[in-house]
Design a protein around this nucleic acid. Structure first.
Length: 818
RNA sequence: GCCGGGAUGGCGGAACUGGUAGACGCGCCAGAUUCAAAAUCUGGUAUCCGCAAGGAUGUGGGGGUUCGAUUCCCCCUCCCGGUACCA
């Protein structure tokens, strides 16, 4: 055996073996337990980046481990191929988005193959392929029939110079990224999917996901934002329609001193007509981006509208204002303002000289409330509230709700922060929305027989308007029953549509329907792996889409992903790797220099998967050095030939017993780390420790050789999911005829693991003062006595009588004096 | 702003259920090998005091609970992710 490690040869040989033996082709087999392991598919941006390598290595390690445990493992790969970057690249490089995307896919596929991931490539999907998006279009028309999609006006960022809609990402400090023009908000008709109809179910479903990280479930809960409150109508003092608001704090109703409306509220728009000051304010509110993060940090501004409403309990007149911080998209686009008990209302009232009226006092009466400094926002007891005085906040909720209901001025309502999902994009590079317009304003679905609506790919894309507008052949949708011309919709789907169901299509990528019976064999996904940045949007849309497919009879389960692993970012010099920051590391160069196994090993060793990973060039060299040492260890060790060993019949030397103990302790730890904890870094550290012991071990007899062989075989088996190529070769070098990929995961022998001597720490008053070597089965009294007898312990006990002695089995003794 | 997360040696990290802080690796230092260097091997390496034995301090900052806190509770600082049209 060559004493030197040549990763390039080793890796191409291993990959050839897997290819020739179709090692990763899988089919449904009801006799075997299935395991569907899925990593979030990449956007084909050009080349793989380190985040991809990390994500896919984690998925591959889990897949290969599950396979060695005997499961029928599906691990597919595909491409989230529609999206904005292709259009940007098209403008920059004068190349059609389709061509750019497909070339990127070809290049990146090659990179994934070089990394040796165990994918069933026969199942590859690209979402820009009509064979994929046609089913999404069909599904949309089904949702339209079921009234689960609808069309309404909603706000977009409009660049008045480029005459185009901008994504939030393309608005920088309120200006268009290319034109530099001040961005305007524009309301245009768009398609929405009724995710709010499933809000309650999506919230409840989180309780049935024990395999999801708690933080992701918390974020989704907060995002859905279920709140119980009261819908209250404030009658106008003039003839107008009553003003509706929703509040979760009806107990503060008696403290309302003004109302605030969103600038886009229909009432404000009506009043602005003919009021130049108000019109100017609305104009100002209509500048800048639509992003919530921008809206939330804006200076709070407002203007009195000159109209008044009546308080629903007291009939008192209340002024109505327009305010830039009230969102039209949430609730009714209007709020009741209680400055004494809401911090934002308080700040606005102070800025505009509006009254602050306290109506809640702290339940524990001795606490001071200083409304000169800030609002008092906690629940408490009602004061200055007439008939409701003395009620606790929760009692007042019911009392006031009942009072309003009796007057027909309000009712209890459950509200969600979650908004319906807007799926229209005014973009070319996306799946066409399968809808026809007849000019009457009531669009119709494209009939199933006419699907797919294929996106023309041969276009000259130069930015600005969607090129579909200038393509008569695309726009022409034939005629209706009366012979009137129909025009095709030019908007395309939000790319989250494609990524909401790809996991299901992988089960049956060639089906002549959206999904066939194979989906129910493979689903749900047993392990899903992807970036934490997808914690809300993608993962919530996919959970929603899965339920839509369930209700269409396409899948049987409620949830798509049983277990979720959210990986952290890959950083360099404390910042996310990005081209703009110039701190990227190209995986390609590293693969060429060190080989795929080194890159995979470093990625898994540098940090646990959920944590951000700090890139280190010298760490990569360290990983490579370890693989070279491992190679040499196998090459130079005298291990005999494979075979069954009768351990019970062997009298082992002390050193051999110790190495065997270490081997089985390592198998035990690595199994737990890989299967339960997903801490591949500590699994690798444990294997390194075992290797260090192996290199110190000098076999002297047949028993020693057997122990050494067992240790090295274990190392190769335990590492094989992480560094599959080198392990493939080393397994053969150890004399085996069958490839390591088809071996069973090793089992720890608990008898071999058992320690005979253990080390205990002896503390005096919680500080370590001595170490104790005792037999593992030593009685407690002996341990206490030995601890007290120690010279240094005696020094710190200083003749005092111990108050108590705490003995933690196998860990420590703590002697408490004084 | 709001929601979620994070902070441990010179660096990445370990300590899994409140029980010996710093496993493993990187880097650095010393030695071996070499004409020399690279590579490789051996030993050392939290900080401070000490020849040593040993001691004191130490897990972003401040407080608390406990025999015992990196771990639990309260307050604060900074950094990261998301914030509905980046994916």
């Amino acid at each position: 055996m060559d004493p030197h490690y040549h990763p390039q040869t080793v890796e191409s040989e291993a990959q050839e073996y897997w290819e020739d033996n179709r090692s990763f082709h899988v089919t449904e087999d009801p006799e075997r337990e299935k395991f569907y392991c899925l990593s979030m598919f990449p956007y084909p941006s050009g080349r793989l980046h380190m985040g991809h390598v990390r994500n896919y290595t984690i998925g591959d390690v889990i897949s290969r481990y599950q396979r060695m445990c005997g499961r029928n493992v599906l691990q597919p790969m595909g491409w989230d191929a529609f999206g904005l970057p292709a259009e940007n690249a098209a403008m920059k490089n004068k190349v059609a988005p389709a061509r750019w995307t497909r070339e990127n896919i070809d290049y990146m596929r090659g990179q994934l193959r070089q990394l040796g991931f165990a994918y069933d490539w026969r199942r590859e999907i690209a979402t820009c392929d009509p064979d994929y998006y046609r089913w999404e279009q069909w599904f949309f028309t089904r949702l339209l029939e079921k009234d689960l999609v609808y069309r309404r006006e909603s706000t977009v960022n409009w660049d008045p110079v480029d005459q185009t809609v901008l994504a939030n990402e393309q608005v920088i400090d309120g200006r268009g990224w290319r034109s530099g023009a001040l961005v305007e908000k524009r309301r245009i008709p768009q398609w929405f999917v009724r995710i709010t109809a499933y809000a309650e179910e999506l919230l409840q479903g989180l309780d049935d996901l024990p395999g999801w990280p708690a933080q992701v479930k918390t974020m989704q809960r907060n995002w859905i934002g279920r709140s119980r409150g009261v819908l209250i109508r404030f009658p106008r003092t003039d003839a107008g329609e009553a003003l509706e608001i929703f509040t979760t704090r009806p107990d503060t109703l008696m403290g309302v001193t003004y109302m605030a409306l969103a600038a886009q509220h229909p009432l404000v728009e009506a009043l602005a007509d003919g009021n130049s000051e108000l019109a100017a304010f609305v104009d100002e509110c209509n500048r800048g981006s639509t992003a919530e993060a921008d809206m939330a940090v804006m200076e709070k501004k407002g203007l009195p509208l000159g109209i008044r409403v009546r308080h629903p309990v007291t009939d008192e007149e209340i002024p109505v204002w327009v305010a830039n911080f009230v969102l039209m998209e949430y609730g009714t686009g209007a709020v009741m303002s209680v400055p004494a008990h809401d911090q934002r209302d308080w700040e606005f009232a102070r800025a505009h000289g509006l009254p602050v009226r306290q109506v809640i006092a702290p339940a524990a009466g001795d606490r001071a409330v200083d409304l000169e400094t800030e609002a008092f926002t906690e629940a408490g007891v009602l004061v200055n509230s007439g008939p409701f005085d003395g009620l606790a906040s929760d009692e007042a909720f019911d009392a006031i709700a009942t009072h309003l209901a009796a007057k027909n001025l309000g009712e209890v309502q459950v509200n969600f922060r979650l908004r319906d999902w807007g799926v229209s994009r005014q973009r070319y590079w996306g799946a066409p929305i399968p809808v026809l317009h007849d000019g009457s304003g009531s669009p119709r679905a494209v009939p199933a027989g006419d699907l797919p609506v294929t996106l023309p790919e041969d276009v000259h894309y130069e930015g600005g308007a969607n090129p579909l507008h200038g393509m008569p052949a695309f726009l022409d949708g034939g005629t209706d029953e009366q012979g009137r011309p129909l025009r095709r919709e030019t908007d395309t789907f939000d790319t989250f549509m494609e990524s909401s169901w790809y996991y299901a299509r992988f089960a049956c990528p060639d089906a002549d329907r959206m999904l066939d019976g194979r989906a129910n064999y493979w689903l749900p996904v047993d392990q899903y792996i992807g970036g934490i940045e997808h914690a809300i949007l993608h993962l919530l849309y996919a959970r929603f889409f899965h339920r839509l497919m369930r209700d269409e009879g396409l899948v049987e389960t409620d949830e798509p992903f049983t277990n979720l692993l959210t990986q952290g970012m890959v950083l360099k010099d404390g910042a996310k790797m990005s081209k703009s920051k110039g701190n990227t590391v190209d995986p390609q160069e590293l693969i060429e220099q060190y080989g795929a196994d080194t890159v995979r090993l470093f990625m898994m060793f540098a940090a646990p998967p959920e944590q951000t990973l700090e890139w280190s060039d010298s760490g990569v060299e360290g990983a490579h050095r370890f693989l070279r040492r491992l190679w040499k260890l196998v090459a130079t060790s005298e291990t005999g030939q494979p075979g069954e060993t009768d351990w019970a019949g062997l009298a082992l030397s002390a050193a051999a017993t110790a190495l065997r103990r270490k081997t089985h302790q390592t198998i035990d730890k690595v199994s737990d780390d890989v299967s339960r904890r997903y801490t591949f870094n500590t699994a690798i550290a444990a294997v390194m420790e075992l290797c260090n012991e192996v290199s110190r071990f000098e076999p002297a007899d047949a028993g020693d050789t057997a122990v050494l062989r067992e240790a090295l075989e274990s190392v190769v088996l335990l590492l094989s999911p992480i560094t599959p190529h080198i392990c493939h070769r080393l397994w053969f070098e150890l004399g085996h005829a069958r490839a390591v990929i088809d071996q069973d995961w090793p089992r720890a022998d608990s008898a071999a693991m058992r320690e005979t001597e253990i080390r205990l720490a002896v503390q005096v008053n919680g500080k370590v003062r001595a170490q104790l070597e005792v037999a593992a089965d030593a009685p407690e009294e002996d341990i206490r006595a030995a601890a007290l007898a120690d010279e240094n312990v005696q020094r710190f006990v200083a003749g005092r009588t111990p108050k108590k002695i705490i003995l933690v089995p196998r860990k420590l003794v703590n002697i408490v004096v004084a």
